[in-house]
């Protein structure tokens, strides 16, 4: 596979200042991700996994260091510029509850395309197609609270990939799911990676997921301690 540099960080640092105490969440992360990779970041609780994902996806700003996504430096971007970057380049999957409750599964899936200004017919067509591909088209017109956690999470993945972002960042996507459902979700994402070349970066403790990735980074106390390709 051609190694096209997609995302890199240089000496990335994040310090949280809370009353008196300051927490060093990331302590100089240098990282390169390539298009088509299926990567996980593991590490103990509090090691900075979520923080790293947030910085990579332009959801939060680093205290120091740089993030480049698709050749674009995130530093110095305004709030709305970051929003547009997320909209067009990043797909997010969070641990739980990240569907919009008043929208149906189909509408949720089409939501980012709506923000992108894609015509209604087009986005419905694409949303239906991805739901069918992920095997949840029968829930298209259900509201999130009427479907199971696993199905919600599949819909969240559908929403994250449907607009073909440069990278999908998923923070503990299986943490709220039972074993069987987790495996199904993992296989689904693996397929999206293999068949569509979608790039995934996970933050996870889940060994089932860790078993399926091509590359495993370990984060301890805000530093990358191992980087293992397999």
């Amino acid at each position: 596979m051609p190694e096209q540099l997609l995302l890199n960080t240089i000496d990335l640092k994040k310090v949280y200042e809370t009353k008196g105490a300051s927490t060093i969440a990331l302590d100089g992360v240098d990282l390169e991700l390539h298009a088509g990779e299926f990567t996980a970041i593991a590490g103990p609780s509090g090691s900075g996994k979520s923080t790293l994902l947030h910085l990579l996806g332009g959801l939060d700003r680093p205290t120091a260091g740089e993030v480049h996504l698709d050749g674009v430096a995130l530093a110095g971007m305004s709030r709305d510029e970051l929003a547009r970057l997320r909209l067009h380049k990043v797909g997010f999957v969070f641990q739980a509850y990240n569907l919009i409750p008043v929208l149906t599964v189909l509408e949720n899936t089409a939501f980012t395309m709506e923000l992108q200004g894609i015509a209604r017919n087009e986005r419905i067509k694409r949303a239906r197609a991805i739901l069918a591909e992920l095997g949840i088209e029968q829930y298209a017109d259900q509201f999130p609270n009427r479907v199971s956690g696993g199905e919600q999470q599949r819909a969240a993945v559908a929403r994250a990939v449907v607009a073909e972002p440069s990278i999908v960042l998923a923070d503990e996507p299986t943490a709220n799911l039972d074993s069987k459902t987790s495996l199904a979700l993992i296989e689904m994402m693996r397929r999206l990676n293999e068949e569509h070349g979608a790039t995934f970066l996970f933050a996870t403790h889940d060994s089932r997921l860790l078993d399926r990735v091509d590359r495993l980074l370990t984060l301890v106390d805000g530093r990358v301690t191992t980087d293992e390709h397999r």
Binding site: L59, R79, D80, A83, R84, L85, R86, L87, H88, V90, F92, F94, Y97, N98, L99, I100, P101, F111, T112, L115, R159
Partner: peptide, 16 residues
């Protein structure tokens, strides 16, 4: 709040 956070995270601008 949570829902609005998701919407913003997905890339909605402030104006939106």
């Amino acid at each position: 709040t949570r829902e609005l956070g998701v919407i913003a995270a997905l890339g909605a601008t402030r104006a939106r």
